[in-house]
Design a protein around this nucleic acid. Structure first.
Lengths: 209, 209
DNA sequence: ACATACATTGTACTTTTGTACAGGTAGGGC
DNA sequence: GCCCTACCTGTACAAAAGTACAATGTATGT
């Protein structure tokens, strides 16, 4: 089984080679030789550095070759994920998915399955059954927060600065900081960006792993 | 990997054994010993001989054990397929699927994938793409960004720090800052939290501007 | 050849964010 | 009364984040 990663930059090459020692990495679909077409082959497209307008047609072009296609994105976008899958992709994952996960995905798509992150599967099914849940999955950790901390957390989650929060809650900026530090501890995040993402229930695949 | 077929009738036993010589066939979920739970195990439910009302909860019960579940039906029904998958099934196929196909399905679901017949996949995606875009508008402003800026923006949107981004993209922290400043200008946001929210398509009701 | 856009980096600086350490107050439960 | 928690604030400091001004290199197109 041959896996070809198509990526305009070479930045993640090592990661992929780690997952598949015999993987090929090319910078454009045109470099994928005809000899592979139809055979035991899967195409992995890094769409993260590509303009939005090109992503769909890129996937369509790749999938028209007859091999399973995995779309790899930097920022998960539900609507785009579905569009990409409909355009012919069999897999949808993060560009920086762990090597073990890449291998799982490879196994799945190379056997005719669909692969996407579990949360997308849920959304996908929810939509399909027309039972679009009004209450999106909650963030239970928020229950650990006191009422005041929760107010601060929500402000941060909307992009407010410490000064703005202080004004809104009529407290000192210093107090805001105190609350924020407590929140970081309780929720296990390290800065306000991660807090904002957590409150908004957006996964952070960050750090160096 | 252990496959357990759960079927009140024994009629298709030979077929399954043909696909998986070491498969177990039992007549009820309760017969599945606890020793298997969580381990390398997949559960295959023959729902064809089951009353409609029981199918959903049967799948739910099986999937609550933590192993992948494949729902096997006699008469394919689109709506029911969606419901069964939402109830926790990872696979949906015909009870009389060919042994080779059963093996494909096993491979897929045992690696975290979804499996359903190709025509159902198309239906799923058609429905999803029709319904979802309305609730998830795009972020067209991102098209203003250069490819490099987009990469940085995506990292920020995942909660990465400047240092992490610099490491990931193999550039200086200073360059990351340059990109980020450019992004702020283009997208009209003032800091990385608002950028993260914008990329993730979350409105910011910020008070002061 | 020239203009333009992009990517990159440097120095230096201001602002914001976050932590450490140290308090003070008010209310509830034992 | 005492203990505990939530809430509030101060000084001081460290660490990021962000901006200003400037420069270099590399494409790409006219």
């Amino acid at each position: 089984m041959v896996r070809i990663f198509i990526c305009s930059l070479g930045r993640l090459r090592e990661r992929w080679i780690l997952a598949f020692p015999d993987a090929h990495v090319v910078s454009d679909l045109t470099e994928v030789g005809e000899q592979h077409s139809g055979g035991a082959l899967s195409l992995w497209l890094d769409l993260s550095s590509m303009h939005r307008d090109l992503r769909l047609e890129s996937v369509a072009a790749a999938s028209s070759r007859g091999s399973p296609v995995v779309a790899m994105m930097g920022v998960p976008d539900e609507a785009e994920a579905f569009a990409l899958l409909q355009a012919g992709a069999q897999g949808y994952c993060h560009v920086k998915a762990a090597p073990e996960q890449l291998r799982e995905i490879a196994t799945v798509v190379e056997h005719g399955g669909l692969w996407m992150p579990p949360n997308l599967v849920q959304r996908f099914l929810a939509v399909s059954t027309r039972v679009i849940p009004s209450s999106m999955p909650e963030v239970p950790e928020l229950n650990q927060l006191t009422s005041r901390e929760l107010m601060v957390a929500e402000q941060v989650a909307h992009g407010a600065s410490n000064r703005e929060i202080a004004l809104a809650l009529e407290i000192t900026e210093r107090t805001v900081k105190a609350h924020i530090s407590a929140i970081f501890d309780k929720l296990g995040v390290r800065d306000r960006v991660q807090l904002a993402l957590k409150v908004n229930n957006i996964p952070t695949y960050n750090t160096l792993n």
